[in-house]
Write a protein that binds this DNA or RNA. Structure first.
Lengths: 247, 247
DNA sequence: CGCTAGCTTGAAACCGGTCAACTTTTGTGG
DNA sequence: CCACAAAAGTTGACCGGTTTCAAGCTAGCG
């Protein structure tokens, strides 16, 4: 249930005249753009809580925990997963800074999966009941929530599709590239924060297959892989990913 | 964009004292249960529109159409799908009476997939902008929308998992069984409204594999299959499905 | 160091896909 | 209502992409 971890929540800066939201908070833009007055911004502000850092391997919530909050990743990477009846881990997603976790918990009021930090993670926690209440007064927030939820349906559906190992791997890398780029990082060079096994469980492959696909991509000049470091070398990779990402 | 089809929309009965919602409309319960006054119910009422019937094979919306409404299936079955770059159909879901289509279109304001009737289909259409506006005044509706959206994330994630052909088929049948049961139909006997090919494209199998799995299930005494008619014979099927559905 | 988790590589097995032929059902027009 | 055509479904033989199993490698860390 979005346990507190590490130091006590950092108080959010409030210099009296200006509200400052963390730059990675997905709601910031929506709120600041919508021309709300200061008291409404304050309402939003007070229900945001910065929590963490969580250390690598530390769980943010576990399957079955009571749902009370969604959270935006502020820094680090979060992996969500379930463990199926035969003990195999199914990775449901990786969440980078700016992305929202916990949205799939609303319907059951329990988190339906586990969330774990892959590296030091700081979150913006939003009490969901408060957020929902506020959303009735600030339509922009409601809209933004609807959008985020709807988006996640689409993301999950992508992964459900029927694609080859190469296509899924390409789509995975291109997706990371775009998401990093959107945050101002290089779209061609980045570091994987997850293990090969994590990637495999996400892409429905064996870890060995992940290894082999990396090697093949490298041999074909699409990619440079050095341990966890990735460099995308050729637009051929986007071409491969296109089938899945549809553009 | 949720085209009108067939006869003009049936006017919704309004006998002056009592508002009657279609029994399959997913919002009915939420609204009627929440103790709103009559004028609010009227507000909800006027933005619901019964459309159809759509005939078998007729499209309800197409990928790229401007999004303006979500809809609850009132009768019939709707299939949603996309066509990937290599021309193969990827079935994203089957929607039975009481289930909601179009939720994944909110984020982009365009339908990201096609929706087609598999048999005669009647829908309850909800103008989404109106619904969202109303949701700010009726928190129960907002809640219900959040729940529906969140639920769909989970459903999509299920299908993305790594399971065998047998597990996916079993989960598919058990899911249908439960959904029919929830609507008051027999959980053990029902008729498939989709072709083997549709099932295959949904479960990421070849149509031939669907045939073979049906035969094997039948030989193992789990199932009776006659053409499109299904009879679930053994709890062994649920057992198989458990891995995926997490019961 | 030397242990361990993560990763790579090769060989063999297998699940499900593809191809091809055929049967059954459905739909249509004479 | 029958005849025929087209669509849907089934079955068998073969193929191939991935997995599995086994062995060894590498880097990080006590």
């Amino acid at each position: 249930m979005l346990r507190h971890a590490g130091p006590a929540p950092t108080p959010i800066a409030d210099d009296g005249d200006e509200f400052r939201f963390c730059s990675t908070c997905a709601f910031s833009a929506a709120c600041l753009d919508s021309g709300y007055d200061k008291s409404q911004l304050r309402d939003l502000h007070v229900l945001v809580e910065h929590i963490g850092p969580f250390t690598e391997g530390e769980h943010i919530f576990r399957e079955g925990d009571a749902f009370n909050a969604i959270a935006a990743v502020r820094s680090g990477t979060v992996k969500t997963y379930v463990v199926d009846a035969s003990g195999r881990e199914q990775v449901q997603g990786f969440y980078l800074p700016g992305e929202m976790i916990g949205l799939n918990a609303i319907s059951q009021a329990r988190y339906p999966c586990n969330a774990v930090a892959l590296d030091p993670v700081v979150l913006c926690r939003f009490s969901f009941p408060s957020m929902a209440a506020l959303a009735t007064r600030m339509p922009g927030i409601q809209q933004q929530l609807f959008r985020l939820l709807s988006q996640d349906i689409g993301k999950a559906a992508l992964l459900a599709g029927n694609y080859t190992a190469d296509e899924r791997m390409a789509a995975f890398l291109i997706s990371l590239s775009r998401r990093y780029a959107a945050r101002g990082f290089s779209p061609t060079r980045f570091v994987l924060t997850m293990t090969r096994t994590d990637i495999a469980n996400y892409l429905r492959l064996a870890a060995e297959s992940v290894s082999r696909v990396f090697r093949r991509f490298q041999d074909e000049g699409l990619l440079r892989v050095d341990r966890r470091e990735i460099e995308i070398l050729s637009p051929g990779l986007e071409e491969l990913a296109r089938n899945m990402l549809r553009d």
